[in-house]
Design a protein around this nucleic acid. Sequence first.
DNA 1: TAAGACACTTTCATTCTATGAAAGCAATTG
DNA 2: CAATTGCTTTCATAGAATGAAAGTGTCTTA
Lengths: 265, 265
Amino acid sequence: MTVTNTQPSTAADDGGKPSNMRSLSRAMEVFAELQRADRPQRLSDLARNCGMSLPTTLRILRVLQDFGMVSQTDKTYRIGPAVLPAARSYIENDPLVTASRPVLQQVAAQTGMTASLYTRLGFERILVVRVDGDAPLRYDMPLGKRLPLTVGAAGKILLAGAPDEHLQEVVKGAVAAGHEEPSFSLAELKARLPEPGTDYAYSADERATGVLSVAMAINRSGLPSESVALTSPVEAATEKGLKAGVPELRRAAARLAELLEGTVY
Amino acid sequence: MTVTNTQPSTAADDGGKPSNMRSLSRAMEVFAELQRADRPQRLSDLARNCGMSLPTTLRILRVLQDFGMVSQTDKTYRIGPAVLPAARSYIENDPLVTASRPVLQQVAAQTGMTASLYTRLGFERILVVRVDGDAPLRYDMPLGKRLPLTVGAAGKILLAGAPDEHLQEVVKGAVAAGHEEPSFSLAELKARLPEPGTDYAYSADERATGVLSVAMAINRSGLPSESVALTSPVEAATEKGLKAGVPELRRAAARLAELLEGTVY
DNA sequence: TAAGACACTTTCATTCTATGAAAGCAATTG
DNA sequence: CAATTGCTTTCATAGAATGAAAGTGTCTTA
């Protein structure tokens, strides 16, 4: 089993490290910045926000454009269509994703709840797979959306047992991403996390009102970066009912954990 | 209006050009290679297939991994989860995509057919938006899938009026991508394309059996790179019926063309 | 069990790429 | 029409990216 662990991932890590592949790293920064914005960006804005010179930014954009990762209209740049085939490739071919689908289907069938798989990405998490249960969730399907680690069962369970030092970074990341108020503190976060000894997390009306959730991490050595969750609208489930699904969820998580053995990122 | 036009996009363009940003270009090659393969790749395979040394390939993978664009399990690499937020950002924020949805909805409502938007990417095209009509299409929704330019109405219309020189490259590209037999020729391709003077393309049983389609390019100066299509299963439409939707389609294409004015890539 | 083969990883000197200052354009505005 | 603003190109230089070769670990085979 390998443990490499480079950075906690994602940009925003200008901790003074030399960091190899400067031009590539910077290109990824530009790409990330384009995603952050919800509308096309001017060259000068991108350059300023990424802290690099205009010529450099322009050159990066041109290369990304050549590969369809970036589109340009007049003088504004945005994410390009090449991300679609990439996302499709991920969803269709990633071993964990493909393996989880039947597992989630089984759990959803047995419990009647909606079953989901989340992956940690930097200081956020994203929904990767969802299999609907009997009662539909009313909020829109946030597949691929950046969600907080600090809110919602599926996020919090990824933080259970993490050292304070790491949690402190998570707090900073959540604030930086706008998921939490600037006053958000380590103590507040720790109060939300499941008690030590509990291997699942529960949430009610946390990330979305009217939604209950239990989640379990897919564990391997070290901090987990994936979790599975059961979710249901309040009118279709009680806390008790949801928690009755925990054993099922535990079994599913164990099955997927085997597959993950060895995953570095 | 600007016309920059760097490369015909996508890798495979080792035409001896110096090409700026070598490390970034190579990183994109690695990323593309990972998508091409439908299962996790070993470092040595990636290095060989991309024509670069092991250390270089490794360094690229590590940076991409830091940004979640690549995942690693043991010694194998694959596309990472960060492509999902990127794809979501594209679909939610791209001006053409968001603008096209209501337009396609209107066309679908008026004609009862399925309405789609395609974008050219290199020597292929991808489905970006689809709004279903009355009769469901039986093949699975290929959103983000790489489809041939040389097959199907929505592909062929993007090639109408292109100079032979360009079509010859398209032929090569289609063969290289496995969309056409190695014997595929320029003459064959030209025979498929709509007659000069026609602004739409028609296809029956071309890319998928039992499916009829008409498509129209979203035109601006030069070669188009987007097209809109009406599609229907054979049992729900006739050639005549589909072609009756062409005026609607033409109006939709014109509306979207305005928006595209100035798009470089 | 030992020896060999294989694949990944690190190191390091060299090359050439990536970089930003500054000049050159183009477009927009007062 | 002049001035401002923002994009693009040029160019000399710094330093990043590169691959050969050595190093390390793991798996295979005798």
